[in-house]
Write a protein that binds this DNA or RNA. Structure first.
Lengths: 207, 207
DNA sequence: GTTTGTGAATAGTTTCACAGCA
DNA sequence: TGCTGTGAAACTATTCACAAAC
């Protein structure tokens, strides 16, 4: 390997491998082969080996991958080792669900601040985190927050995205069903639940 | 065009185009060019034209695409025109959020039944839909439901998936962070929120 | 014997550039 | 003139097959 550009598709799969590795590690397993991991995650063994080959040799022929090392490496590649504070904007149904979602902590994410526009919510606490007024959505930089989660209605998402960018955010997880335009230096990942559901019938055998 | 296999990537993008088309149509717009739609959705114009070219000529050179026709065609291709009843399993935080999520109805999806294992929830109503005991998760076929949404803890997801398959479901939207094994005839789409978040730091400029 | 790591072959997708139609 | 539709070229990703390592 060495000195290859890492395919985006590989980056997309790394968190999946990480999830599997953490799961096994918690069960006390110490080593795993590419084919065992593959079966568990529903992918191909050669895909896993190829993906790992972009980063270095962390496996041992005849044995497999040591989970501790594997987890450490993937965490480092994805820059999850440092931990990340995130600001959640919009504490409605979805936002509330996200607040109590255990999956974030597992990857070192911490929702450190929440914001809403609804005066009735502002000042209250949800999961022990204070809900602040969106107008206070400034200088996240100073609070060490570089990551925003947008869970507001579609209409407001572009505006909120711009506020987040101004506040110093460099990555946005967007749950609103809209494309949001931001400067190239900011990375946006959009999760549109209905969008994924919408292609399910296409793949379903005739009904 | 004609007689090409449709790339999966194109199928993945069709709901995005549909969303954009519906949005414009609601605003009273009647025609749109590939480049207008592209700007609005943050994609390339030639990508849109290429994608549409797999299905037939629904555009008019010099004019663009008539939104009414475009929407009808995409809906038909994705088989969203008939409407789909879905069964939601797991009425916790996420499940509740999904119940009040407006995005489903927009694509003709209707959460027609909900199930939970928690006896305290069973019998109650949420968004006017009765929460039934998971043991009643049978014969969805008879109720005209061929689509399942899994919003239960990871541990239980494989078991629930198997119950859904037995009940006649042909497509599953899985929100649990686990690979679930099902017969090939059943299509599973997994949405793992933490997984998408996990690759954000990789793309964020050094922090 | 088992399992990794990886070049080479294959498959799939995006981008381009432009002919042809309204 | 403006915009679509699409082959061909360029690029990217997946799959294979096997030599090397344990």
């Amino acid at each position: 390997m060495r000195y290859h550009r890492i395919p985006d598709e590989t980056v997309r799969r790394l968190p999946v491998y990480l999830r599997g590795a953490i799961h096994l590690s918690r069960q006390g397993v110490e080593n795993v082969s590419s084919s065992e991991l593959a079966t568990m995650l529903g992918v191909n063994a050669w895909q896993i080996r190829k993906d790992f080959s972009y980063f270095g040799d962390f496996g041992t022929p005849g044995v497999g991958y040591e989970l501790k090392i594997l987890i450490k490496h993937i965490n480092k590649i994805l820059r999850l080792n440092t931990g990340h504070k995130a600001a959640l904007v919009g504490v409605g149904n979805l936002g509330s669900a996200l607040l109590s979602f255990p999956g974030f902590a597992a990857y070192g994410f911490d929702i450190a601040a929440t914001f809403d526009i609804d005066k009735r919510k502002v000042g209250r606490r949800k999961n022990s985190i204070l809900i602040e007024d969106v107008s206070r959505l400034r200088n996240l930089r100073r609070r060490g927050i570089y990551l925003g989660i947008i869970a507001v209605p579609a209409k407001a998402s572009q505006e909120i995205a711009e506020m987040l960018v101004k506040a110093g955010v460099r990555g946005i997880l967007n749950f609103s069903p809209r494309y949001i335009a931001v400067p190239k230096r900011v990375k946006v990942i959009t999760i549109d639940i209905a969008m994924d559901l919408a292609r399910l019938p296409y793949y379903m055998p005739s009904s």
